[in-house]
Nucleic acid binder design. Structure first.
Lengths: 197, 197
DNA sequence: AAATAATGTTAAACTAGTTTAATTTTTACT
DNA sequence: AGTAAAAATTAAACTAGTTTAACATTATTT
């Protein structure tokens, strides 16, 4: 892939590790760039997840559809975030989750087929991904704690303080789904908060 | 540390990677073995987490005490599991969580000071830990989904089917905390389930 | 064997969040 | 600009889970 388009990824990577020009070139030759339109699916529940995806621009939501047909949003990914069904990716079994673009989105894809080989050739990259996942894991555990120890109102306040840019870009009913509450109740909460001020 | 006591760890590691005798010896020289009594703390909220811990025998609980003084159990770790406040460990900042032994417990400790050096000397170990964390992350995300899409009764049934050995060993009020419900409500749920059969 | 502490149960009153359904507001399309 | 579609609000009836408090059972210690 073309270096210019990969710039956001390269500067992101450089926060963790330093690649030599050769390593950078090798990496470039293996990863793929792809544009998606709003509404398009990057991964579909039931398919095997073939890529780890870095978001260059745009926004995606990752969600699970449960047995009652209800949609539960697990995460949003904007610029400089990752998205993938990690469980499906590492085991190459059918995905539990969907990833859909909620804006026109540019992604850089790390294909499953080459990633182990890339780790072998560039051990620093394995370090890089280890660190990324460590952080993702920490964030995920914190979210579990919040879901048990905070009320819906507190969780919403936390979200809107922590991710103000995301809140701007995303319809409220999706935020409700991310917070694990109904859109009606989020609407009520926002009304209450407005009165508090 | 002594090789005999490390046997469970070594066979666990061998499921992921193959170490040469020299690598194994290097690893052994860097990690520590330690016994804890029931009730002892391995990590305390507020302290910096200095080790990643592998459970050789016994059982620990990791929990967070919230602002209201309420205890929320994040995970249990039995034989062949890991425990640590990963967030505190990787950033070397004060821990959000406590780890306490709920049985007499034997741990193998991977000290923070040597782990990066160990990764450099044995890149395979970095691969090993990457894979462990990937799995932990996947499990954590699935738990978020369950906490949103399942009722308390369904979550309990899932837990008791998934971890029957853990359920045997642990008081019911701790399981309630892990499931994010009160002990009274878990008791009610168990009553209902008993009637269903 | 008795006594104490730890764990588990039951039930009534309560509350945070859901459901349903009707209405309003905002956004996108021709 | 006008229309349709998507998103957000409101409110009443409901339910899953909490709180409080009293009691029962099981382990642990002496």
């Amino acid at each position: 892939m073309n270096k210019e388009k990969a710039q956001p990824l390269l500067s992101y990577i450089s926060k963790y590790i330093t690649l030599t020009p050769e390593e950078e070139q090798l990496l470039m030759s293996q990863i793929k760039y792809r544009k998606f339109l709003k509404g398009q699916y990057v991964i579909q529940q039931g398919d095997v997840c073939k890529h780890e995806c870095f978001v260059v621009s745009g926004c995606t939501k990752m969600f699970h559809v449960d047995d009652d047909g209800q949609e539960h949003i697990i995460m949003f990914s904007i610029e400089n975030w990752w998205t993938a069904d990690m469980g499906s990716f590492i085991t190459q079994t059918p995905a539990d989750y969907n990833v859909q673009c909620i804006e026109n989105t540019e992604l850089i894809l790390f294909p499953y087929d080459i990633i182990e080989d890339l780790y072998a050739k560039i051990p620093k990259l394995e370090r890089f991904f280890r660190q990324i996942i460590e952080r993702a894991f920490v964030a995920s555990q914190k979210r579990i704690i919040r879901s048990f120890s905070l009320s819906a109102k507190e969780r919403y306040k936390y979200f809107s303080k922590q991710y103000p840019e995301i809140e701007q870009r995303i319809p409220q009913y999706m935020i409700a789904s991310y917070l694990g509450i109904t859109k009606e109740f989020l609407s009520k909460i926002k009304g209450q908060i407005a009165l508090e001020e």
